[in-house]
Every structure is written in structure tokens, then in C-alpha cells.
């Protein structure tokens, strides 16, 4: 930070910071340190005593086939969600960048899903694809597809990915539109004069120049798919059928609150924490790069 003019006051700044710090300490640092501590404790089956076991819980979690399944599910879910949400949004943003007429209207209609809670996004898609009342499920059956996401794991995955991507399209769309607008028009014109057709211009000029936005969205979408989609999983599939959609966050919740395996749940929390830290670090590397760009 640059040296700046400040107010000479010794006590006031602490008072100003107090509310934020109090909440941070009580609800963030204390629980997080507890999670760290508990991740190294193991309770006996009756919950009467616990002993310190160092990294035994982590070893147990990381060798648990259910946990590894959950890692796999999370990766499939995140990659699919980010890929669908980003490519659809990019296509729509590129189209929106071409038109002038009704551009505002398109944007207004495109941002609705952002305001819909993830859990409700899941429910909306469930209404459409619920085997007994969903009109689109009816349509699929009419086409001869045996559709039942409540029994078929892959179909359940398709459903939650659809709901999760649908909700994220708005966000990605707005960022891609902003990113496209930031590309100087003369670059496109120069490329046209340089003999590049529309398609070639997109892939050799526009797409590379959009890379910072794309990379940023990749991180944001990954974080979203990891953490913010808990509501979708919880409301639509409950991790099922047969753990086919049990993501890491859902498993932490399930093991801690439903199955009450505290040590395991805490160890999983700590692993998630490491993932968030890694993603945040990547994101800030990006911010730095963006500052130096151009």
C-alpha cells in the first residue's frame, strides 16, 4: 500500500475493527481450529472418550473407498458443470456481443437464474424431470428412454449437473460479455484486414484475449461446483442413488450430522480447507497476472 494521509487516532481503529474481528474469531477461527484438532481425535463408539491419533483419521479417510468414490464424483460433477456452464455462457456471450438490438433485454432475461437459490434450481429441474410428475421425464419416456434419476446414478448425475450449470450460466455470461467488450474493436478490425475470417478471428484473437476471463471463471466455477452446490445435491438426490452423486461437501455433512462420525468428518473438512486454500492461491496468482497484463 502506498503511504497515505491518515487520521492520528490510537483507539478508534480498534473499535472500528472490533465487530468484524469478534465474529471472525468466534465463528471462523475457533471452529476452524477445532476442526483441525478434531481431525486428529478419534472417539470411541459410545462417544464417551476420545484419544489423539495424529493423522490416523486422514489415513482412514483417504483409504476409504467411499471417500475415493466421493472424490471421483466431485471431479466428474465439477468438470462437467464448469464445462457446460462456461461453454454455453461463452456461446451466448459471443452472440450477444454481435447484436445491438435487444441486447439489454437479452441480458435482463439471462440473469434470472443467478437469483435462484441452488437448492431451488435443483428443485426446478426436478419438477421437469421427476419420473412421476415431470413433463420432460414424460417426454423422455415417450421417446423410449427409460428415465429415472432416482434409481439410475448416471441420470441423477446428469440432472444435478444440468441444474448446477443452469444456475451458473448467468454469472459466466455477464463476465464473458464484460470480457468481450474489453477487447478493443480495432484488434478485430486489424485481424479482418489481415485476412482472418470470422471463425479464425474468434480462435486466434478473441479467444486468446479472453483467456484471463476464462481462467478466472474456471476457478470460480470450480469453487462453485465444490461448495455452493451442496443445496442442489441435498435437495435433489441426497447424494444418491447409491452415493452416485455424493460430493465431498455432501459427504462431510452426511458423516458429521447424519452418521455422526466426528473424526472422519473433521479430517474431510481439513482436506476441503486445503483445497480452498489452493484454489484461492491460484485465483490470486491470476489477479496478479491480470494486473501486469497489457
Amino acid at each position: 500500500m502506498s503511504p497515505r494521509v491518515v487520521f492520528p487516532n490510537k483507539i478508534l481503529p480498534y473499535l472500528l475493527l472490533a465487530p468484524q474481528l469478534a465474529i471472525t474469531l468466534v465463528f471462523f477461527y475457533w471452529p476452524a481450529s477445532q476442526a483441525l484438532y478434531q481431525s486428529m481425535l478419534r472417539e470411541d463408539p459410545f462417544g464417551l472418550s476420545s484419544k489423539f491419533v495424529w493423522f490416523a483419521n486422514f489415513r482412514k479417510v483417504l483409504s476409504d473407498p467411499n471417500y475415493l468414490n466421493s472424490v471421483h464424483v466431485t471431479i466428474v460433477f465439477s468438470v462437467a458443470t464448469a464445462a457446460v456452464a462456461m461453454s454455453v455462457a461463452l456461446l451466448l456471450a459471443v452472440m450477444a456481443d454481435k447484436v445491438v438490438r435487444s441486447r439489454g433485454l437479452y441480458r435482463t432475461l439471462m440473469i434470472w437464474p443467478y437469483a435462484v437459490a441452488p437448492a431451488i434450481a435443483g428443485m426446478l429441474w426436478l419438477f421437469l424431470f421427476n419420473p412421476s410428475i415431470g413433463s420432460l421425464a414424460y417426454g423422455l419416456r415417450w421417446l423410449g428412454i427409460s428415465w429415472d434419476p432416482l434409481l439410475n446414478g448416471s441420470q441423477a448425475m446428469v440432472l444435478v449437473v444440468a441444474a448446477a450449470s443452469w444456475k451458473q450460466i448467468s454469472y459466466n455470461f455477464l463476465f464473458f460479455v464484460a470480457g468481450l467488450q474489453a477487447i478493443p474493436k480495432t484488434l478485430i478490425e486489424a485481424a479482418a484486414i489481415d485476412g482472418a475470417g470470422e471463425h479464425k478471428r474468434f480462435w486466434t484473437i478473441v479467444f486468446p484475449l479472453l483467456a484471463p476471463t476464462t481462467f478466472f471463471l474456471l476457478v470460480v466455477n470450480t469453487v462453485y461446483a465444490f461448495f455452493d452446490t451442496f443445496g442442489i445435491i441435498h435437495a435433489v438426490t441426497g447424494g444418491g442413488p447409491g452415493k452416485a452423486t455424493e460430493t465431498l461437501v455432501y459427504k462431510v455433512y452426511n458423516d458429521g450430522f447424519v452418521n455422526l462420525i466426528l473424526g472422519d468428518s473433521a479430517a474431510q473438512s481439513v482436506i476441503l480447507m486445503a483445497i480452498v486454500i489452493a484454489l484461492t492461491a491460484i485465483q490470486f496468482r491470476y489477479v496478479e497476472r491480470k494486473v501486469h497484463y497489457g
Binding site: 480495432t186 484486414i193 485476412g195 486466434t204 497489457g294
Partner: peptide, 27 residues
């Protein structure tokens, strides 16, 4: 513009920022 066989120097130069000078000229 692609088929007119013209070249243009822009006020802000419009160099492709992600390409080296060589590639800017070779594009």
C-alpha cells in the same frame, strides 16, 4: 476488408497483445 488486399495502420496501432512482434507481422 479481407479480400480488398489493403493494409491499415491504426491510431492505437491495434497490435495483437498476445503475439510476439514476429507473429504480429506474420499473422
Amino acid at each position: 476488408p479481407t479480400e480488398r488486399d489493403i493494409a491499415m495502420v491504426f491510431q492505437n496501432y491495434a497490435l495483437y497483445p498476445h503475439m510476439k512482434v514476429y507473429d504480429n507481422m506474420a499473422y
